[in-house]
């Protein structure tokens, strides 16, 4: 890394109340959720207050940042901070998904074959072959009730393949929008972003339908052993990230319509685009490792 000479002063923001409200809201949300899942229904009110607090902070904090950005407070130096920060943040997200891919790998390659490979005289699960996909030797237990492990795994070449096409296309449209921004072609920027948002929403609708299909017709649930747990946790967290990414894209779209961003000053756009590409890459891994193989 070479040294750079900096022009002028770095922007150090004034004191801000948002972080404390955000932390308090997270405390209320987490605390309420804990009470809720342990049979204390009153927890939902704490969750509601926490959720509203988070919404308030999102609008307030990001609104302030957008105001500062459009007000010309951020120059090249600050811009570089945001870029490095976003890269590091996405790296931490990669590590989060790696934990779940790691769990999938461990079950498929180590624990399931081992459970099927025990000496038949000593295993508590005689006759279990350890093939994949599996709900495990003991069947599925949902809410304490035993159900036999009958489920149909999710095929790769129906909705998942369409979803792959959708996300890959959305990666193209967001890049096309970026080209528009770089050429100062606002129409292309807005049209590209609108298409990306539409594709994101379409992906989420299909994913929701797929979950419904899995629960209602395939008998595939979160409780379906190793396969069900990894399938729903991986695709679920990915879907959650697509939801966040779509919300971010909508914000960027609205900002573009209001005339924000310049061809040489648009970290907000690029940060969202990077995030979207990251979500895209995770999906490709999911498609190959969860649906296909």
């Amino acid at each position: 890394m070479t040294t750079q000479t900096h022009e002028g002063h770095y922007f150090v923001p004034n004191p801000s109340i948002y972080p404390v409200i955000l932390s308090t809201s997270l405390l209320l949300l987490a605390g309420g959720f804990i009470f809720n899942i342990n049979g204390h229904d009153a927890g939902k009110w704490s969750m509601l207050v926490g959720f509203l607090g988070i919404l308030y902070v999102l609008f307030g904090w990001f609104g302030k940042v957008i105001g500062e950005s459009e007000g010309g407070m951020y120059k090249k130096w600050e811009d570089r901070s945001f870029r490095i920060g976003m890269i590091v943040f996405i790296a931490s997200e990669v590590a989060f998904f790696a934990a779940f891919f790691g769990a999938l790998f461990y079950m498929r390659v180590i624990s399931v074959p081992e459970l099927g490979g025990f000496d038949s005289e000593f295993t508590p699960y005689p006759g279990y072959a350890g093939d994949w996909p599996t709900a495990g030797p003991g069947g599925a237990t949902v809410h304490g009730a035993y159900t036999p492990a009958n489920f149909t795994p999710m095929g790769a070449w129906g909705i998942p393949a369409i979803n792959t096409l959708i996300l890959l296309t959305s990666g193209v449209t967001v890049t096309w929008a970026h080209w528009g921004l770089l050429k100062n072609n606002r129409k292309q920027l807005i049209a590209g972003l609108a298409m990306t948002v539409a594709l994101g929403v379409a992906f989420l609708c299909l994913q929701a339908y797929e979950y419904h299909h899995a629960y209602q017709e395939l008998g595939l649930t979160l409780g379906s052993g190793a396969y069900g747990a990894t399938f729903f946790m991986l695709t679920g967290f990915h879907g959650f990230h697509v939801t966040l990414g779509t919300i971010m894209l909508i914000v960027i779209l609205l900002r573009s319509i209001k005339g924000h961003f310049k061809s040489d000053h648009h970290f907000g756009f690029e940060g969202v685009a990077w995030y979207w590409h990251f979500v895209d890459v995770v999906w490709l891994l999911l498609f190959v490792l969860v649906y296909w193989l």
């Binding site: 899942i37 989060f96 998904f97 790696a98 934990a99 779940f100 769990a103 461990y106 079950m107 180590i110 624990s111 399931v112 081992e114 459970l115 599996t134 709900a135 495990g136 030797p137 003991g138 069947g139 599925a140 237990t141 949902v142 809410h143 649930t221 979160l222 409780g223 052993g225 190793a226 396969y227 069900g228 747990a229 729903f232 946790m233």
Partner: peptide, 24 residues
Amino acid sequence: GGVTMLLTDRHFGTHFFDAAGGGD
């Protein structure tokens, strides 16, 4: 990620750490 799996094992019926479901 690990403690999240713990949470879902505890409350939402997953089997990440339960041999009966193929976990460990």
